[in-house]
Structures are given as C-alpha cells and as structure tokens.
Design a protein around this nucleic acid. Structure first.
Lengths: 193, 193
DNA sequence: GTAAGTTTATTGACTCGTCAATCAACAAAA
DNA sequence: TTTTGTTGATTGACGAGTCAATAAACTTAC
C-alpha cells in the first residue's frame, strides 16, 4: 500500500509519537518499537527514515525548538518597546505549546543527552545563545551595562522555573511560572541601569 | 577474604563509584558491572548490598544531598544576620563539594528519574521544600510579604544556574555562577520589602 | 497503451549484543 | 556451624539495527 510522498507524513508522525512516548515514560528509555507502534508503523520503518533512535529523538527536539522559536517570534512581533518585547520573550517560553508536560520532559532528557551527544550539545547551545542574545538586546536600553548579567540570570531562571514544572504534581501552572519570572523582571526594571 | 565489617566500606565505595561512573557517562545508562568494577568488586556484591541498580543510584543521591546539607549548614552557622545567612545558603549550593561536574551530572539524571520514580520524587521534594523554607525564613525580615515569591524565584534560579553548569565547556565556574545569583539578590535587597 | 524496469514504501523475522538479577559455591571469622 | 563476605557462571529478557521479500506507484521504451 505504498502511497508515494509518505516520508514527510511518517517523519511527522514519528516526531509526535516520540514526544508523547518519552513524555509518558519520563525518560529516553523507550523502545523504537513503542514509538513506531504509536505512530502506526513498524519499527523497521522508523529506522528506515531516521537511521537510529538517537536521530529520532533529535528530530523531535528540533521540532520542539522550532515550535518554541515560532511562539517567541509571534509574541515579540506584536509587542511594543524594549520592555514589552522582553516580557514577550519570557512569556514565549511559557506559551501553551511549549509549556506542556511532555515537552518539558523532553527538554529534561535533552539536557541529559546534551552532556555527551555532540549534536544535542550544539542544538542546545544554539537555543541558549539565541535566548540570551535576544534578552540582552532588549535589556540594553533598559539596564545598560548590566544587560549581560541580567540576561544570563533571566535565562537561568526561565530554565529553572521551566524544569521545575516537570516535577510539580498536576498540570504545569503557566500563570504561576510566569509570575515568578516576571517578578524578577519587575525588580530589575524598577531600578533601571 | 572476608574481613568483617565490610558492608559500610563497600557501600561507600559503591556510592563513590556510582557518582564517578554516572558523571563520566553523563547518564544513568551505566551498568552495575561498570560501577562495581570501579569500586573494586563484583557486580554480584553490588546487588547483594543494594538489591538493585536503582537503589544504588538513590543511595548516591542521598549521599550528595547529605553532603550538600552539611555544606549549607556549615556556611549558615558562621554567617550573621538574615542577609548574611541568605548569601550563605546560596553560596552553599555552589560550594566546591557540590559544584562539581559529576555531582551536577548526577543531579540532572536525578531530575529525570524523579519524574517517575517515587523515592526519587520524594527525595527531590524534600530538598526543594527545605531550600525554599530556608530562603523564605531569611527573606521574611528583609522583603516581608514578598518572601514567598522571591524564595521560589531564587530557588529556581539556583537550579537553573546549577544545571547550566553541566553543559558549559570546561570546569564549572563557581565564581561566575555565584555572581549571577548574587546579582539577583542584590537587586532584591536593594529595594527591600 | 503496455511490458519491463525502477523507485519508494513497508514489514516480519532474525541477529547479535547487552545486562540486571540470581544462585550455588567457597572462604574466613565468630 | 552459623554468620558474613564474595564471586564466577548462568539465566532470562529485552531491544537496536539489519535484511530479504513484497507490493504499489511511477518511468521509459517501444
């Protein structure tokens, strides 16, 4: 039953299934067969399209990062002024699409993988660098020379709050997460540079 | 060659070897045999003393948490005033004993495990609760009602900075990590409640 | 337009390796 | 001789990745 042009559909299905499966298991110790079954195909096909389990997961992370980037850009584009854009960037990290159990769980495992897997390491770096650079850019007109340190602090806090959400009972509380980070921002903006 | 009283020595050796092995691998996907070899014994003996791989790792984390607790208490005991103690608590998280690659790596994996392993989950909760409560206690006289939110923010930032150190190239930079967090603290203390 | 050949999609079955956990057995101390 | 320490060998399960085979859809040549 080969319908041609199946590749992109299959890949997307595998990416989706990977996020779900890893999210449920809470770890990368899931089998390719599990992922493939969830995506409605044989494990052989998953290997056919991605080559290895690692590559499947990396594709899933790339998808998550793409989604995240789009959410941030969307929020920033309608925001006004440095402070508005700053808050938009922060809010983007906790946007509904990114702030879900499965996605947070994937992030956590991504961190672990990035310690040893070069591709994952590079990917994570790209994300961190971009986030920091975006924050710094908007912070400069507000806090001046302290932009660098504040950007790092903010980035770290976003990650910290984000990751903690993975361990909270119940659904991640977006409003509360935002409150914590925004509170910090308020303090910084109150003082000015 | 059974020397009696071997149990505590063996257990300690296994805990140490676990932290080293997990640190090197960057993940929990290490074999009991690897850990046992490093600790100078057979894998059967490791199972004899701990029952399972999971329990070995949990023992290692308990050790890390004990060490961390001791470091914080030590620093706090010689500090003076709420602000001094606050800074001591923060500094404790980045004390030399706790702020090492292997230890940070263990933490990262611990987070992953805590998502699904009840004992790990409980253990992590104890740590988080204690940290937050300590921070809040010292913050109250300084920032009043905002103590709760600030304590959460500070806790999240500590975790964020800490975990990011696992991904940095080279040895973890204690001074810089501290700078980031202290900067935040300065801001909060500058304003007062 | 149709037969032959090619590419794409797909899977069941299999290989090969790994590893947690168990056990029987042995050794030395109490 | 019972308790404590210790291991080599084994079991039993699991899982990543490969492969040969099948089939439908497209292409080309006549």
């Amino acid at each position: 039953m080969p319908k041609l042009g199946a590749e992109p559909i299959r890949r997307a299905a595998l990416v989706k299934a990977t996020i779900e499966t890893v999210g449920e298991a809470g770890s990368l110790e899931v089998t390719v067969a599990q992922i493939a079954r969830r995506a409605g195909m044989s494990s052989a096909l998953a290997h056919h399209y991605f080559g290895s389990k690692e590559q499947i997961f990396l594709a899933a992370m790339r998808h998550i990062l793409t989604l995240y980037g789009a959410e941030v850009r969307g929020a920033v584009s309608i925001a006004e002024g440095p402070e508005g854009r700053l808050r938009a960037i922060v809010a983007g990290s906790f946007a509904p699409g990114s702030f879900r159990r499965e996605v947070i769980s994937a992030w956590l495992n991504f961190y672990v993988l990035a310690q040893t897997q070069p591709q994952a390491h590079r990917l994570l770096r790209v994300y961190q660098r971009r986030l920091r650079s975006n924050l710094r850019h908007e912070l400069r007109p507000i806090v001046g020379a302290r932009a660098e340190v504040v950007a790092r602090g903010l980035g770290a806090m976003i990650d910290g709050v984000y990751i903690r959400a993975a361990l909270a009972d119940g659904a991640p509380d977006r409003a509360y997460a935002l409150k914590i980070v925004m509170e910090y921002l308020d303090r910084e903006l109150e003082v000015r540079g």
